[in-house]
Amino acid sequence: MERLIERGLFASRWMMAPMYLGLALALVILVWIFLMELVRFVMIVPAMTVNDAILGVLALIDLSLAANLLLIVIFSGYENFVSRMDLVDHVDRPDWQGEVDFSALKLKLVASIVAISGIHLLKVFMDVGQYDPEQIRWMVIIHLVFVISGVLLATMDWIANHAKTLKYRRTPS
């Protein structure tokens, strides 16, 4: 009975596969939005100001960071929680694939969120006159919460890894 339950629980990891396929579909949607934004950006080039150019580029960078975040979650999430991808010999396989554990995934997620939040703040600062000071204040506070959360998460992981290292050093062989 125990073995049957354990096998069932282990097989339940495959319920995550449709979620990763859904994230891949979300990546297609982001590519579509990126292309639409790129076309819109190119169409205003003749009348573009410096601010328009910077804001347009920041919007494209923002979308590409979100797409990178999705790829990291799809690849590492699938490999950590569902099954290993048998692509070791593939020439285009990213170097980090298969090496991003759950701890590293959390840090990459937070770092991406902080970067995306920073880009949004930069866009606001480029056109600060169109925003209410209270909105800007809340955006800065939220960004700082993301930054502090990332630093605390990285610190907790460092402490946990450091504690493991110390434990293994103290263990007699």
Rank of each mutant, 00 (worst) to 15 (best):
residue 150 G to P: 15
residue 45 V to Y: 07
residue 65 L to Y: 14
residue 88 V to D: 13
residue 167 K to P: 01
residue 80 N to M: 08
residue 134 E to R: 04
residue 143 H to V: 01
residue 106 K to S: 09
residue 150 G to V: 01
residue 42 V to S: 05
residue 109 L to G: 05
residue 132 D to L: 05
residue 25 L to C: 09
residue 158 W to F: 14
residue 51 N to R: 14
residue 3 R to C: 08
residue 6 E to R: 11
residue 83 S to Q: 12
residue 121 L to E: 00
residue 66 A to F: 05
residue 74 I to L: 01
residue 60 L to N: 03
residue 156 M to F: 10
residue 41 F to T: 04
residue 40 R to A: 15
residue 170 R to V: 01
residue 105 L to E: 10
residue 59 A to C: 07
residue 19 M to E: 06
residue 150 G to F: 00
residue 74 I to A: 02
residue 120 H to Q: 09
residue 69 L to S: 14
residue 104 A to S: 11
residue 52 D to H: 06
residue 60 L to A: 04
residue 101 D to I: 06
residue 44 I to E: 01
residue 61 I to P: 11
residue 119 I to L: 05
residue 72 I to Y: 12
residue 51 N to L: 09
residue 62 D to I: 01
residue 98 G to F: 00
residue 61 I to M: 10
residue 112 S to Q: 07
residue 2 E to Q: 09
residue 103 S to I: 08
residue 94 P to E: 06
residue 13 R to H: 07
residue 72 I to P: 13
residue 137 R to W: 09
residue 139 M to H: 07
residue 143 H to G: 02
residue 26 A to V: 10
residue 62 D to M: 04
residue 125 F to S: 03
residue 13 R to T: 15
residue 61 I to C: 12
residue 108 K to T: 04
residue 104 A to F: 03
residue 103 S to N: 13
residue 143 H to D: 06
residue 8 G to N: 14
residue 128 V to E: 05
residue 12 S to N: 05
residue 1 M to Q: 14
residue 162 H to V: 04
residue 68 N to R: 15
residue 31 V to R: 02
residue 31 V to I: 10
residue 65 L to I: 15
residue 11 A to P: 08
residue 168 Y to D: 12
residue 168 Y to F: 14
residue 1 M to Y: 12
